[in-house]
Design a protein around this nucleic acid. Structure first.
Length: 581
RNA sequence: GGGGGCGUAGCUCAGUUUGGUUAGAGCACUCGACUGUCACUCGAGAGGUCGCGGGUUCGAGCCCCGUCGCUCCCGCCA
């Protein structure tokens, strides 16, 4: 291929195919920059070696047309080497050209220089064939391929089998909305697209396939974001006769292999932290460890406060928690108000603020504090204390957001630093504070911690789960768990989650329970967000840059024009009718 | 479902603050000149439903109301 020609190819007679990236017509001679996925190649048309008719034909070709160029590879003179091109030491002296795919004038430019802005997202998606020709996107999708291959190589090397699972499947309760597909054969019945292959991979374990993986497409009908698409890809993994440590070690090896593919060395093992510790110190179950600003419990100091806000929060069983921001004392009233707005948006009633100035505390609360408060807080000159007095359920998310914003303002978020982390010991259930209803934090098939279950059988809200998340710089890369392999325990879990009726359990999950009853090995697994990893390693900021044909945030495919209306006859055949209005 | 940003030539944008003659620039495109360029250069030209609809006004790219599209965030996404 033309973009791969190097000095060693000098002398070769070649026919190179590609797209006309740019042309420079100097009058008597001209140069075409020919592009393929490997890069750019200069083709030189000159009367000394090119027939006049060929020069005329080359001069008439429009950019983005597909051409075949015949010629000989020549070394460029030293003063004409282009160090910015991989092929910069050579050029093809053309003797012939054939336009095999003439192109209309492109609606959006493909050949851009470093400092030009890409076209609007809408145009990029509408003219995706042109957009995907751009070298950045070519590189991103080629990286994506290498990551998929590295995944297959690594897991195959460990004896994992790549097995496929159905796309037309049964609706299962995985939290998100399902995409439904009407059945033509069975009036009024629907398939669902899988939100993940979760149950199938557990069934593979019951089948005895031991170690499974799949680069699996998943579908969730929820609103989109820069890092969320309707359909996305995960690296789905499951294994039998293993425990948490086996999965973690295997997963660390996978991360190492993937990052190595992008030329980045990753050190393992990753540090670990319990969910409880992450929530206490960072207010978040996927903390960004690139910076400090850890949350401190200052309840003891504020207990003596005469402030009504604090007293009522403490009386309700809450705490006073805060972060201390070095240099924050210099922020203006307005800047701190913005932080408070962030805290309020996250659910807090407000933000307590204190700063030390000339040995005394300043802030709306200062006068309500006991005299020894300054000594107890140890606040230094220039530091700003930002706190929330409330239940942890309120203060954790609020302080998490405030902490992230402060770190961004102080420039503490270094994109060159990578802090991997395992978060362990998630709670099994999330309890609704009003109704008391339990919901699975991970999913209903996660195994609870057996010791917790034995110690407090009547308090499931206190049980920990054998679940784990892999986190990088505040982003969840993947997560998994050891599963419940005992059908009786699984049935109990359904019961705790409000599916008490046995017939209901059988109707919805009978196929899983049947697998477990047929003799299930202990098993567990993990799933990584493949697109998100590709995005990180391609230095992209949107999933759309690592997915060839993505949807817009309004869930439309602009290039193909999906979704679309269909003829009424098609609907009739599927036994569905549009709702009037 | 809610909040913010953007929408002017094929593309990227200026013009909107303070309504006023014929809406501009760079790139791309067309034509012409040019024999070593590499974002070639130079000259000329063509190119506009100011997203769409309605309103205010003597007059709207600019003000008001509505609406559509793209985007970022909240909700949502176990």
């Amino acid at each position: 291929m033309g973009g791969a020609l190097r000095r060693a190819d000098v002398g070769a007679t070649v026919t190179v195919g590609g797209w006309v990236h740019r042309s420079r017509d100097l009058g008597g001679q001209l140069f075409l920059a020919l592009r393929d996925r490997e890069g750019l190649l200069q083709c030189s048309f000159n009367p000394d070696w090119t027939a006049p008719a060929v020069i005329a034909a080359a001069a008439a070709v429009g950019v983005e047309s597909v051409v075949l160029i015949e010629g000989t590879v020549h070394a460029r003179p030293a003063d004409q080497v282009n160090p910015e091109m991989a092929t910069g030491e050579v050029e093809v002296r053309a003797t012939g050209i054939r336009v095999v795919g003439p192109a209309l004038t492109p609606a959006i430019p493909v050949a851009t220089s470093k400092d030009t802005k890409p076209p609007a997202e809408e145009l990029r998606l509408r003219h995706r064939v042109l957009d995907l020709r751009r070298p950045e996107l070519q590189h991103a999708l080629m990286l994506r391929h290498r990551l998929a291959k590295a995944t297959r190589d690594y897991l195959s090397g460990l004896g994992y089998l790549e097995l496929e699972t159905p796309i037309l499947t049964k609706p299962t309760p995985e939290g998100a909305r399902d995409f439904l597909v009407p059945s033509r054969v069975h009036a009024g019945e629907f398939y669902a697209l899988p939100q993940s292959p979760q149950i199938y991979k557990q069934l593979f374990m019951c089948c005895g396939f031991d170690r499974y993986f799949q680069i699996a497409r998943c579908f969730r009908d929820e609103d989109l974001r820069a890092d969320r698409q309707l359909e996305f890809t995960q690296i789905d993994i499951e294994a039998s006769f293993i425990g948490r440590e086996d999965i973690i070690t295997m997963a660390e090896g996978l991360v190492r292999a993937l990052w190595a593919e992008a030329g980045i060395a990753v050190e393992t093992p990753f540090p670990r932290m319990s969910y409880a510790e992450a929530m206490e110190r960072y207010g978040c179950d996927r903390p960004d460890l690139r910076y400090g600003l850890e949350i401190r419990d200052l309840t003891a100091v504020f207990r003596g406060s005469e402030s009504g806000i604090i007293q009522s929060a403490l009386a309700a069983g809450g705490r006073v928690r805060a972060i201390v921001v070095p240099g924050g004392g210099a922020w203006s009233r307005k800047q701190v108000d913005e932080l408070e707005a962030i805290a309020k948006q996250a659910g807090a009633g407000g933000l307590l603020r204190l700063k030390a100035h000339q040995g005394a505390l300043e802030g709306p609360l200062a006068k309500f504090l006991p005299a020894d408060a300054q000594a107890a807080l140890g606040l230094q000159e220039g530091e700003l204390l930002l706190g929330v007095a409330a239940a942890d359920r309120i203060s954790s998310p609020a302080l998490d957001r405030v902490r992230q914003e402060c770190a961004a303002r102080l420039g503490l978020v270094d994109p060159a630093v990578r802090k991997f982390l395992w978060v362990l010991d998630f709670p099994m259930f999330d309890q609704d504070p009003e109704t008391g209803a339990l919901a699975a934090v991970h999913h209903p098939f996660t195994s609870p911690n057996a010791e917790d279950m034995a110690a407090r059988p009547d308090a499931p809200a206190t049980w920990r789960a054998l679940a784990y998340d892999c986190v990088l710089n505040g982003t969840e890369l993947g997560g998994g768990s050891i599963r419940t392999s005992d059908p009786a325990v699984q049935s109990r879990m359904f019961q705790l989650l409000g599916i008490g009726d046995v017939r209901e359990q059988e109707r919805r999950f009978g196929f899983l329970l049947e697998g477990l009853r047929a003799g299930a090995p202990p098993h567990g697994g993990i799933a990584f967000g493949f697109d998100r990893i590709a995005m990180l390693l391609a230095n992209a900021t949107s999933l759309r840059d690592v997915i060839a044909f993505p949807k817009t945030t309004a869930a439309r495919a602009l290039f193909e024009g999906a979704p679309t209306q269909v003829p009424v006859a098609d609907l009739d055949e599927l036994h569905i009718r549009p709702v009037e209005g």
